[in-house]
Amino acid sequence: MNATRVDEDFTSSVHVYEPHRAGLPRLGPYIRTLWHRRQFAAEMSRSNIRAANTNTFFGQIWLVINPLLLACVYYVLITILRSGDDADAAERFVHLCAGLFAFYYFSGALTTGASSVVAGGKLLLNMSFPRLLLPLSAVRTAFFRFIPTLIVYFPIHLGFGQPLSWEMLLAPVFLLLLTVFGAGMAMIFATLQVYFRDTSSFLPYFVRMWLYLSPVLWFPEDAPERFESLMIFNPLYSLLGGWTDLLVRGQIPDLSLWIGGAVWAVVAAVLGSLFFMSREREFVVRL
C-alpha cells in the first residue's frame, strides 16, 4: 500500500512501486483499500480487547469496575474541594460521571491510537496495508471499552433522580463528533510518536491537564469569566459541554457548542488523516 499507485483490486494483479513524492498517496485507491481491509482493523481491535484482561481475576468486568472507581475517586475529590456546601450535589455527580466517561473514551482513543503505529512495529515491517487502519482500530477499541460505561451511566442517572427527556436522544450527535475528533487526534499523535518516542511519556500529563480544562469537573457555564472567550479554543469544551448538557440536563446546548464541536471534529479528522497519510510511507524506516 505504500506504492504511489495501487491497483484497484488490492489483492490481485499488477502493482507498480515507484518513488513517491513527499505528498499524499492517491486518495481514491487508498480509501478503497482502507475500506476493503476494515475487517482487519475490527478483528485487531476485538482481539486486543479480548487479550487485555485475560490474566486478571475479574476479566472483562474491569470494563465496568474501572469507570465506577474512577467516578468515586473524582467524586471524593470534588466533594472535598467544595467542602459539602452544595445543593445540587446529585446533579453534579451525574454530570461528573457523564463527562468523565466520555473524556476517558476520548483519552483512551488518543493514547492507544498514539502508540498504535510504534506498537505495530513488526506488523508494519512484514505487511503492506494502509497504515491508517492502526489508529482507527485503536479508536474502535476505545469505543467498545466505552460502551459498558454508558450502560453503567444510566442506573446512575436514574438512581440520583435525574429525569429522562427527549433531548437525551440528541446526545449521540456529540458522541459522534467526539469520536471523529478523537480519531483525528489519534492519527496526529500516532505520527508524532514515530518521530519522537517521548510523546508517549508526555501524553498522560497533557491528557490530565486537558481533563481539568474541560467541563468535566465543572459545568460549562462555570468557566471563569476572563477565560470564557477562550473556551471555544478548547475542542473538548464544545464536545463534552454539548454531550453533558443533552445527556444530564436535557437542555439543548448553545449554537456555539454545536458549531464549535463540528468544526473541531472535521478539522482534526481532515488534518490528522492527511498528516498521517503523507508520512506513513516513511514509518517503516523509522521504526
Binding site: N2, A3, S12, S13, Y17, K122, L125, N126, S128, V284
Partner: peptide
C-alpha cells in the same frame, strides 16, 4: 512486497504477494 517505496527506479509485481519477512507477525 510494497512495504518500502524505492527512492529510484521502478518495480512491477504481477500477482498476489504473500510475505514471511519478520517473525511472529500480526500475532498477539
Amino acid at each position: 512486497a510494497g512495504i518500502l517505496p524505492p527512492t529510484k527506479g521502478r518495480i512491477q509485481v504481477n500477482g498476489r504477494v504473500s510475505t514471511l519477512l519478520a517473525l511472529g507477525v500480526g500475532f498477539n
